[in-house]
Design a binder for these strands. Sequence first.
DNA 1: GAATGGTCCCATAGGC
DNA 2: GCCTATGGGACCATTC
Lengths: 100, 100, 100, 100
Amino acid sequence: MSDTGAMQKDTDPGYETATGSEAMGVTGERLRSYIERIERLEEEKQALADDIKEVFAEAKGTGFDVKVMRKIIRMRKQDLNERKEEEALLETYMAAIGMI
Amino acid sequence: MSDTGAMQKDTDPGYETATGSEAMGVTGERLRSYIERIERLEEEKQALADDIKEVFAEAKGTGFDVKVMRKIIRMRKQDLNERKEEEALLETYMAAIGMI
Amino acid sequence: MSDTGAMQKDTDPGYETATGSEAMGVTGERLRSYIERIERLEEEKQALADDIKEVFAEAKGTGFDVKVMRKIIRMRKQDLNERKEEEALLETYMAAIGMI
Amino acid sequence: MSDTGAMQKDTDPGYETATGSEAMGVTGERLRSYIERIERLEEEKQALADDIKEVFAEAKGTGFDVKVMRKIIRMRKQDLNERKEEEALLETYMAAIGMI
DNA sequence: GAATGGTCCCATAGGC
DNA sequence: GCCTATGGGACCATTC
């Protein structure tokens, strides 16, 4: 098997040399890299969630009913999804009857 | 009360004239604006969620165990929160004894 | 506090007399009763899930495309939900403007 | 091939005459029948899910901790599965030595 | 604190 | 046989 398989249902060979102050080897480095990328993305995601909350708060401060707004947004999203679904269904039909 | 309160536990005054293509009045315009801002933010948020999924997929393709990765990320986040709480507690103490 | 609160964020007093072969007291009996009721319901639910799988299998055996069928069913359900949502939205509007 | 194969990787022959209220042909009728059977089963399944929720709610109202209850139920299920597996294993052994 | 909605995680099912 | 896709369940945050 290839080296990429390390750390997935596999025993750590452990023969990798630690370079510099790090003792965890290249696959460890890569794992750390992935994890940090994800953490950064999640931070940005959280920031957006906060932004959204702010907008709701502002709208509320201007006199709008947040509950209603949420409902409207949910329904608009549903409409969008439904349209997409219809197209997908059409394709599925076509695939089912061999037209695609 | 102010006009901004319309749509929140208030009867629609109804005195706004529908003109041309804007038949829903200024408060309607503002509502639409808020909703669209939120929708845009949610799209970006969704895009980030997709990015995260991609990174996980890539990591998986490189041989890492996604479930384990999730656990690690959760734990690191937990650690972070705990550290923040400790700091907050510290500040509380310091404030209590007049150090801040 | 009342006895009904036992077992919820509370220490077991432990003074209840065991009757017959059971050593867990009345609240234990009631807990067991709830759990068994739920387990029975879940069994029935699982049986229905199996039935559904069977029907799909039969339909497939008769030449129908299961994927298409699932999509159709999902969309019909969505339509239903959407209609319900619209009604709910209307009510929310009415509540928001104080008509209800 | 048989007519039952229609709608599955097959072109619609299209020779069926639409008559009165049944404009979709016999295979359409059968499809509808399957779908409605499934929908009925899913309704019943949903009803059971609601019942379960109710029981949990009632238990909660009597002072039990729902989260703990869920855990117990999960564990009991696990136990059950393990016992079933053991029995199955036993049977396999018995079959292997000709006792069954 | 009760209820509701949203998100995340897992387990299963179907396709390739 | 893996691998993706989808549904269900659990948990959490937020609202009233």
